[in-house]
Design a protein around this nucleic acid. Structure first.
Lengths: 351, 351
DNA sequence: TTGAAAGCGTTACCAT
DNA sequence: ATGGTAACGCTTTCAA
């Protein structure tokens, strides 16, 4: 039961609030934006009107009046890594489109596997140059602290790819690496049809996301496919050349390898090596991230499945989260959940 | 090389256009919106200014001034079918959220498998009640014509779920049922480990999407898994009760069935039946759509995989397409492509 | 502590 | 055929 009449549009506006509360537009605005200089009693009157009318701010109009521009920054590792490449590409593509929607996207790279560089980068960011930052990188206490400091300074920060803490009240773009590892294991176990050893190639044995994937992989393997024997991880450091160097020896040493789980980047090396060795006698290969390299491998049948997170979705998600956080408005959780995509040669998206 | 100075904001506005072209705001607006009553020469002047300055209209401001409200309608089959239920739920959830963004979502149902009902529905829609329609239903020439008529009347129309024509210049939310069928076959073939018969349950042998799925399924089976024998489709008419009635006989008749591909709806019947029969000796079951029923089946291991299209994504996509079409602006193709999702028990999204 | 009024980029009505 | 101007819903000086 509304107190007074509403504007013809249906939705109440600040004009309705002003009228109902018996104050001016400016005062309503002050209350709405928590600006100082309003008496307690007046604040209450306005808040009552807000509640009574069920007022909801029109963000588009507010942003227009405010001439608001969202300046968002992506901090990415300077790694020659297909996934990071895809992210950078997406940031630039989407940045071009978003520039017409009062949103400026930027990307800065830091040395990979170097938390201190991220800390330094974060610490030099000021809220009057940047509104929000998406950070893709390893989680360390130092990074976590830098994130906290940045937030305290008024920056919106969202960790990307779940390499950062997933404390409940933080906004972040989540990835469940444990589940990704489990998924890889399930496919591996079901695709392989005889007992034998399985190889896992990881990036760094210290990187949290890699550890999580491995843990998930092992859990399923142990429980559901006990006849398969998972070997200790080989560290490929996301480096195609290194992987290409290491692999031949392993293939020679392990006689009847049944499967390879490439849980990190550097798939080009793996692919080259497998193509050269022509070891496609039932060897099941499962890798991560849908990139030009892995697409080709899926097409030719060298890879059997690819577990992937969509870089485009990740970037869009981060942008929405950053904006929502900057505006202090809630967002749709379910939309921001990043799926664990499974690609076979038959369901790859075109292009 | 810009002709004159731009406004302080960076992006040119209609004020800049007016100044550069030497005309009034009103005239610029007329040209921009293709309204009559402007001399050829004047139009050209304005267009030149637009090109020179690289002007791009601020949709938010335009919508504000215009008090634009998008009234979008979803036409869905009145089928007791999990996927349609999910769509209806999504329309209502997203409708609630979008109501604060000048967007009204509605849904109307028509009898299932009844093209004529869709035609009737479409034909009675007027552009002064509705701006856009998303149609989920069978493709027939009559429907196609009704869509054409609706478009001619000025309505934005997007076919949902690719049951409608995918002519290149139409905007539509695409689904590749053929690829979905292939994907199901690939998983089926790799999951099954001994030769034998495979059953396909379809909805209607006439529905185009079901036919496409079956075609894709057969293609992969024939080529890559010749030791598996795909039986003729059983028509379940998306009806759990019917499926539950039909299945026991079949299971009895076909001695060592290796797999079941449930390519349509009505999974509840399949599940009940399988649970009752306890026929879980290596029977591989692959179904469509992630619903409460299929989630449970995945968790308990009765289903081995589910091929799904995300209803939330589908609805969001349709809304974006409808708005873009109504506004006659381009949209991001890649974002609107609906993936063929594969879910195993390990990578189901929470909830 | 409060209000009036101008302005954000665009549209739309009323003149001319 | 063209221009002036109020208005959309909100923010932001500047005065009072």
């Amino acid at each position: 039961m509304p107190e007074g009449d509403l504007s013809p549009t249906g939705k109440p506006t600040i004009n309705d609030l002003a009228r109902v509360a018996g104050v001016s537009l400016a005062t309503v605005d002050r209350v709405l934006n928590g600006r100082p200089g309003v008496r307690r009693a007046t604040i209450d009157k306005v808040n009552k009107a807000i509640a009574d009318l069920g007022y909801i701010r029109d963000t588009a109009a507010a942003n227009l009046a405010r001439r608001r521009v969202y300046r968002l920054l992506f901090i990415l590792p300077d790694a020659a890594n297909e996934f990071v490449d895809a992210l950078i590409t997406q940031v630039s593509i989407q940045g071009a489109q978003l520039s017409h929607q009062r949103t400026i996207l930027g990307a800065r790279t830091v040395p990979p596997f170097d938390p201190q560089a991220i800390v330094a980068m974060l610490d030099q960011l000021s809220p009057d140059e940047i509104d929000g930052v998406a950070v893709f990188g390893p989680e360390t206490p130092a990074v976590r602290d830098a994130v906290t400091r940045a937030r305290a300074r008024g920056l919106a920060v969202v960790p990307l790819g779940a390499a950062l803490p997933r404390a409940a009240r933080y906004h972040f773009v989540p990835t469940d690496n444990y589940a990704a590892g489990r998924t890889a294991a399930r496919l591996m176990g079901r695709f392989i049809d005889q007992p034998g050893p399985v190889l896992v190639i990881t990036g760094s044995r210290l990187a949290r996301d890699h550890l999580e994937r491995r843990a998930g992989f092992d859990a399923v393997m142990t429980t559901d496919f006990p006849t398969l024997d998972v070997l200790p991880s080989v560290e490929g450091r996301d480096d195609p050349a290194l992987i290409q160097r290491l692999l031949p020896d392993i293939l020679r040493t392990v006689p009847n390898l049944r499967g390879i789980y490439s849980s990190a980047a550097g798939n080009a090396g793996l692919l080259t090596c497998l193509e050269r060795e022509r070891r496609r006698d039932n060897l099941v290969v499962i890798a991560h991230e849908l990139t030009p390299v892995s697409r080709r491998a899926l097409e030719t049948g060298v890879f059997d499945a690819v577990i992937s997170q969509n870089a485009g979705h990740l970037v869009r998600s981060a942008v929405r989260l950053l904006k929502a956080t900057a505006d202090q408005v809630p967002f749709d959780e379910t939309q921001e959940r990043i799926r664990i995509d499974i690609y076979l040669q038959d369901n790859m998206p075109p292009e």
